[in-house]
Computed example of a mutant assay.
Amino acid sequence: MMDLLPDLKPTSYTLRRFILVICSLLITSLTVNVVLSDGSRNLDEAIALFENKDYEEARPIFQALIDEDKTNAEANFYLGRIALAADDDPKQASKWLKKAVKYDDSRAEYHFLLGQVYGMRAQDASIFKAPGLAKGVKKQFLRTVELDPDHMDARFGLMQFYLNAPGIMGGSDEKARVQAEEIKTRNPVMGCHASAVIYEHDDKMDLAEGEYHNLIASDPDNSDYQYYLGYFYQNHEQFDKAFDLFDNILQDHPEELRALYQIGRTGALSGQRPDRAADCLLQYLLSEPGPDDSGLDWAHHRLAMVYDKAGKIDSARVHYEAALVINPDHTQAKKALKKLK
């Protein structure tokens, strides 16, 4: 989920969320009869609350619908989404999503999200659990494209799985290229990204970089494509290019929290431009990241790395510890803090 995925919210937000939880429990006890009186209407109401990010108001309605009918696949699906968006709990999310696909196997989006969640869990899993979770990713993505052949994200996920998984776990360069060709045929823009990943895998870095530039040229206003190129630069230690790219994004879009974080991450990985990296991460720590942004635990961790590489050990220790206060299960912060002592 690699820290390019969302994590936790700031303490102030967490406090407000806790208050909402308490209030929602009280409200639920008063309104459960109303919730159960019209399942269809209340499902629509809960979905609307979810889409408005009112997760703690939506949660008891979905739960009441499941209490009435445990086979309500959509309610299970949305509780899985809430476990991710509000709780940052992939393990709990997978429990809800497994029920969703059990009770309705025909929904591609259910299978795709379950596959994504297995992937998140696999990143931090033990060597004993990771293979099973990886196989779960493959199974769910295959079912997704079986149900929806034009589901490009699932095809892209399959391509990456085949490229990165060992052969004993189902990895296959040949199958990865099949998915890349399917993506090109069905979506030429995403085909540029797929080609870039294949070239990168083949160590054809100039061709890979060219495809990322083609991707950006296809839609200059899509900042995601610029980030893909930035991640490519980070992964291949072209740090000056990464700094410049993310700085340009931030200059054009000062509201872009991702750019702040990625400038800091580039400094954390490289040890370069430590003042700039630290400044950006400190700004990020004063923000309230959205569900698609890296969490504040990761921001503290990256800031600690910047200080660590700069020889500011006491400051590094403070921020590794802060990461663990937010997320006691942050494996990388635990390991880094242990090395400092």
Rank of each mutant, 00 (worst) to 15 (best):
R107N: 02
G136E: 12
A278Q: 04
L285D: 04
D104G: 00
S195H: 10
R186F: 04
M205F: 10
A93T: 00
M169V: 08
P60S: 08
R143W: 01
R177S: 11
K99E: 12
Y212S: 06
N52P: 05
M120A: 14
L36G: 05
E174N: 04
D69P: 02
P10R: 12
N327F: 11
G136N: 12
F77W: 05
M2N: 10
W96Q: 00
Y118F: 12
I61E: 04
K138E: 14
I19K: 15
R302F: 08
S40V: 15
D153R: 11
V101H: 03
G80Q: 07
F246V: 03
N187D: 15
D292P: 02
H151I: 10
L229N: 01
E211S: 03
L142S: 13
Y228F: 15
Q160E: 14
P90S: 07
D203T: 00
L142Y: 06
I183R: 02
A217K: 13
K334L: 07
A86L: 11
Y233N: 04
W298F: 14
K98H: 08
F246C: 07
Y227P: 00
Q179W: 09
G115I: 10
V178H: 00
V306S: 02
L79I: 10
E109G: 11
M190D: 14
A322D: 12
S37K: 07
L113K: 09
A333W: 07
A242D: 05
K339L: 10
L340D: 06
S218R: 06
F18M: 12
I27W: 03
Y212I: 02
L79D: 01
M305S: 14
V32Y: 11
R121Q: 13
T331W: 08
R186D: 07
A322V: 05
D279S: 07
Q116K: 11
R273S: 12
V197M: 09
K102D: 04
D153P: 01
G115C: 08
S94V: 00
F161N: 00
N52W: 09
E109L: 06
Y227Q: 00
I19N: 06
P291I: 15
D297C: 01
Q63F: 15
S29F: 13
A83N: 05
Y228D: 09
E181C: 09
S126L: 01
N187C: 06
G271R: 06
E56N: 14
S223Y: 13
S24P: 11
K312T: 05
R16W: 05
H236C: 01
R258H: 09
A165F: 08
S40M: 10
N235C: 12
F232T: 06
Y55D: 01
L260Q: 12
H253M: 14
K129I: 12
G295F: 03
